[in-house]
Nucleic acid binder design. Structure first.
Lengths: 204, 204
DNA sequence: GGGCCTACCGACCACTTGGTCGGAAATAAA
DNA sequence: TTTATTTCCGACCAAGTGGTCGGTAGGCCC
């Protein structure tokens, strides 16, 4: 028991540091030695806990990325009130933390997808799954919004969901080159306009 | 004259093949040897014409990417008619060609920006410049649309331009994981709705 | 104390990378 | 034909990569 605890503690430390560096420098541009140096550990320790670099990354996705993604991008949207409003607030918050260079989990996803596209189908699969969870949740939230009278019934929920995700990761991509404050402000403004269209006429 | 001609011909061949591979596999994941093998040339030839891998890439951006970007993403939008309509058609065409795995120059930009972000500020500068050209052109087109009576005067042209670019590169990022046909359709639909809002009331 | 197993060390390996360099075809000039 | 110059060849190098492996420190059980 105690042994497994120590084992898990070390593995977790490795995963946290690994995700940080992978997110900062990219997967292929981060060597195992980089991570080990940051941790003060050795090659032996790494390959004792993980089979390979790829295996390591997948374990990070499953243990950290998925959970963080849920708690930052999905759960905040859920609720009984107006889903459009929740989406707006969640997106705004995420973009705000992104300005302070903290890990942005919505962006991380598209970042990694871009990097692995055409290179590693196995990892791509895991990333795709998360993205689809995001989409599915948005769609069902929009549908619920329809029956609750917040969202106009004629809109295409799937289309809106894809559009929302696209615009978010797009603006996030643009934000890396500075002006993030202005971009966020502009983005939220436009999103607000767009949402007026989607809202039930009575609520607009 | 003839010498410079041959020189330029070889350089151009290298740049075209280089861009293709860089776009497919990424900059850091494409070795000079890969490019040389595809061309049937040797290391010596490469370093005779270019100083370094970075210098090579920059020459590609300046000689190929900028021009392609103009002819595919900027010039088609210009014209005397409704700019919103032109934007819609241009985006739709670009996304369509993207489905057939051809080079998509709008996407290429965000792709490279993602890859170089935080790693190579010099190259980032060149990519940023192109993006800003895109934005400036969209803004002035929208402004012209206002005075021509196509676009509502109350809209924030800068905000709309950023929002358009973001949504485009976002949807393009999502398209890499399949379903590109559906995504394109959904995206154009939503964009059309969004544009109705931006249009001058009389023209809607 | 003796044995054992988990967790970690670090030298080592095969391979790839960007880049160098002396030289050899090819072409043009004399 | 000789000479110069442009263009290209390919062996080579140092640095770094992911991954292997023999070894060892320290806690735990008998």
């Amino acid at each position: 028991m105690d042994k497994t605890l120590k084992r898990m503690a070390t593995m977790h430390r490795m995963q946290v540091t690994g995700l940080e560096l992978f997110y900062q420098n990219g997967y292929y541009n981060t060597s195992i030695d980089d991570i080990l140096k940051a941790l003060g550990l050795s090659k032996g320790a790494f390959y004792y806990h993980f089979d390979s670099k790829e295996d390591f990354f997948i374990s990070i996705v499953q243990n950290l990325v998925v959970q963080k993604f849920y708690s930052h991008m999905i759960e905040p949207i859920e609720g009984q009130e107006d889903p459009l409003n929740n989406i707006l607030n969640t997106f705004e918050n995420s973009l705000a933390t992104a300005e302070h260079n903290t890990l942005d989990h919505g962006f991380m996803l598209s970042n990694f997808m871009t990097e692995f596209n055409g290179k590693n189908p196995v990892i791509m699969k895991y990333l795709k799954d998360i993205y689809q969870i995001w989409e599915v949740n948005l769609v069902s939230l929009l549908q619920k919004g329809k029956s609750d009278g917040y969202v106009a019934r004629h809109i295409d929920s799937e289309g809106v969901a894809s559009y929302l995700i696209a615009s978010y990761i797009g603006i996030r991509t643009l934000m890396v080159e500075g002006n993030s404050r202005t971009l966020r402000y502009q983005y939220i403004q436009q999103l607000r306009q767009y949402f007026k269209m989607l809202a039930q006429k009575e609520m607009a």
